[in-house]
C-alpha cells in the first residue's frame, strides 16, 4: 500500500538578511505498510513523527524540502497525485483539537469531511450519525462547538472525521492522547477493525503501550532516523529488542521500571558515527566512525553495527 524509502525532510529559513539556514528534521526514514496492516511509528517527542504524516499528505509548509522515494499503491506519490488523494484515499486523524474549526459545530465538520471524501449528499446524514454512535458521542454533541468538548471527546470527534469517508490509508497521529484507557482501547479497536477490512493504518504515537495493543509492527524513530523495525511480539521484556534506544523507551514506562537509561534528547549534531554509542555497551571503534545502516536481524530491522 505504502512504501517509503530513505525519506528526508529539511526546512530552510532566512536568518540574517539573505543568509539561508537548513534544519534537518528527518534524516533517513524507511517504512512499508501492507493492506490490512497497522504499522506503529513510535519515538521521541519532536523527532518529526507528525512531519512524516504531513509529508504523506503533502501539507508541509513551502520552506520544506523533501527527498527520498514515496510509493502509494505501487505508483510514485507526486505532488499532483497527493492533491487528488488526500482526504479521499489518504486521510489524517490529527493530533490536536486545534485542527478543528473553532467556529463550526462539530456535526457540520464531520459532515463536511464525509462530503469531501466522496459520500453523496443523501448518504451524509446517516453516515455521520453512524460515525457519532460508533465513537460513543451523544447525538446532541453534533450541535456543540469544539471548545465544549472534553479532551477525550475531541479526540473521538477527530477520529470520526477521518473514518467517516472511504480512505484506504489512514494516518492516525497520536489517536489516543488524553483518552482514558477504556476510550483509548475503543479508538485503537476501531483502527484494528479498519485494518481488518483491508485498509492500511499508520499509527503515529509516543505511547508504546497503546501501540502494542493493536499494531502488527513497530518502527522506532529517534533523532531523525528510523532505528528499528520490530514485530509487536518482540516487546515482551524477554530481550528480543535490538536497539538500545528501543530498550530505553520500553524500560522507561511507569509499569516497566520508570528508568532513565539515556537522556531523552539525542541530538543529531555529533559527527558521523552512531548517535547512541555513548549509551551502548557494545560500542567499539567502528561505531565512532560511521552511521550504521538498517540491517536485517531476527525478522526485524535495526540501525546498528553489532545487534
Amino acid at each position: 500500500m505504502l512504501d517509503v524509502h530513505d525519506l528526508s525532510i529539511s526546512f530552510s529559513s532566512y536568518t540574517l538578511g539573505l543568509k539561508k539556514k537548513e534544519v534537518c528534521a528527518i534524516r533517513s526514514l524507511d517504512l512499508r505498510i501492507a493492506p490490512g496492516e497497522i504499522m506503529a511509528v513510535v519515538g521521541q517527542s519532536g523527532a518529526g513523527k507528525s512531519l512524516l504524516a504531513h509529508a504523506l499528505l503533502g501539507i508541509l509548509p513551502p520552506n520544506a524540502k523533501v527527498s527520498g522515494s514515496l510509493f502509494f499503491k505501487s505508483r510514485p506519490l507526486t505532488a499532483e497525485r497527493l492533491t487528488d488523494l488526500r482526504g479521499s484515499q489518504i486521510a489524517l486523524i490529527p493530533q490536536s483539537v486545534t485542527y478543528l474549526n473553532p467556529l463550526l459545530r462539530v456535526g457540520t465538520q464531520v459532515a463536511r469531511a464525509a462530503r469531501l471524501s466522496g459520500v453523496s449528499r443523501d448518504e451524509t446524514p446517516p453516515v455521520v450519525r453512524r460515525a457519532f454512535a460508533r465513537y460513543l458521542l451523544d447525538k446532541e454533541v453534533a450541535d456543540w462547538f469544539p471548545f465544549q468538548l472534553s479532551g477525550g471527546m475531541a479526540r473521538r470527534v477527530l477520529t470520526a472525521t477521518a473514518t467517516v469517508g472511504k480512505a484506504d490509508l489512514l494516518l492516525a497521529d497520536e489517536p489516543t492522547n488524553g483518552l482514558d484507557s477504556a476510550a483509548a482501547g475503543e479508538a485503537l479497536g476501531h483502527l484494528r477493525e479498519l485494518a481488518d477490512t483491508g485498509k492500511a493504518v499508520l499509527l503515529i504515537t509516543h505511547d508504546i503501550k497503546a501501540a502494542l495493543q493493536v499494531a502488527d509492527k513497530v518502527t522506532v524513530f529517534c533523532a531523525g532516523n528510523s532505528v528499528e523495525v520490530a514485530a509487536a511480539e518482540d516487546f515482551n521484556g524477554h530481550g528480543r529488542l535490538r536497539h538500545p534506544y528501543t530498550k530505553a523507551l520500553w524500560n522507561a514506562l511507569p509499569a516497566n521500571g520508570f528508568r532513565m537509561a539515556m537522556p531523552p534528547v539525542i541530538t543529531s549534531s555529533q559527527n558521523d558515527g552512531c548517535l547512541f554509542r555513548l549509551y551502548c555497551h557494545k560500542q567499539d571503534s567502528l561505531c565512532g566512525k560511521r552511521l550504521p545502516g538498517l540491517r536485517n536481524t531476527n525478522g526485524g530491522w535495526v540501525r546498528c553495527h553489532h545487534a
Binding site: G43, N177, H206, A248, A252, F258, M260, P263, P264
Partner: peptide, 17 residues
C-alpha cells in the same frame, strides 16, 4: 493536568524526575 500524556516515555521520566 495530563501534563506528560503528549510525551514519549523517556521524556516523561526525565520531566517528572
Amino acid at each position: 493536568d495530563e501534563m506528560t500524556s503528549m510525551l514519549d516515555s523517556l521524556t516523561q521520566v526525565s520531566i517528572w524526575r
